[in-house]
Write a protein that binds this DNA or RNA. Structure first.
Lengths: 115, 115
DNA sequence: ACATCATATGTTGATATAGGCATGTGTCAA
DNA sequence: TTGACACATGCCTATATCAACATATGATGT
């Protein structure tokens, strides 16, 4: 099998650098496709397709004004990612981990209840 | 070109569900490959390969005890992801966004012929 | 209607994947 | 040394991508 589709969830969608950059641009507020094309150095089809992926996972939403499609971030779609990553905060914030590692090293005895 | 390598960065590495699950298992502490194989329902080569990816991006670290390879999480490697996602917190925490969305919708809706 | 602007979509080609299975490497025990 | 155990790695196939170019859709203005 191949990799999971980029449109599977936010995790897969934000794996691509260009898509993260697009989201960063949209942090400044709504932007049309052309604006994004200018600010990043991507072709229009590239941006449109990336936006399509982001739309599928609801990371961005679109509003049409005349012939311009104005995109904006829907940060809520990033919550699952945020929450998931957050559960690992302890693993870089707490010094206890260092102690834990040390204990693990000290306790590293080959288990004998086998065989 | 194809998608960026899963070993490019943490973003790509955690895009895969199995790899996230492996990291979750390791939240309980060190675990050998066989332990992970048992707790998740994956084959041993699958787990080994996923661990290889996680090792490449330094999301896990390994320590060998006898013939067992004990893996543990290196949460620090998730910091870039955490920090990046965190910049979007405002987009789901602030009520102002709701108001913004509402205004956008009101300004964008062309008259419909539904009635 | 027509030309033009702003986006979306389709196609092709190269590439990296993930699963399945087999096999290699390294360790322990007798 | 031999065998069993724990894990890593190699090969294969199907698949989903991403860039690039071309083209279709849709709205605007004259």
């Amino acid at each position: 099998m191949a990799r999971a589709a980029t449109t599977t969830d936010a995790f897969n969608a934000i794996a691509e650098v260009s898509r993260r950059e697009i989201l960063e641009v949209l942090t400044d507020g709504e932007a049309a496709v052309g604006d994004i094309v200018e600010r990043l150095r991507l072709t229009q089809p590239q941006v449109s397709k990336h936006l399509g992926v982001l739309r599928t996972v609801d990371l961005v939403r679109c509003r049409t004004v005349g012939r311009r499609h104005l995109y904006r971030v829907n940060g809520a779609a990033l919550r699952p990612v945020h929450d998931w990553v957050r559960t690992f905060e302890a693993h870089w914030n707490e010094r206890l981990d260092r102690l834990d590692d040390l204990l693990d090293d000290l306790l590293a005895e080959p288990p004998q209840e086998e065989t």
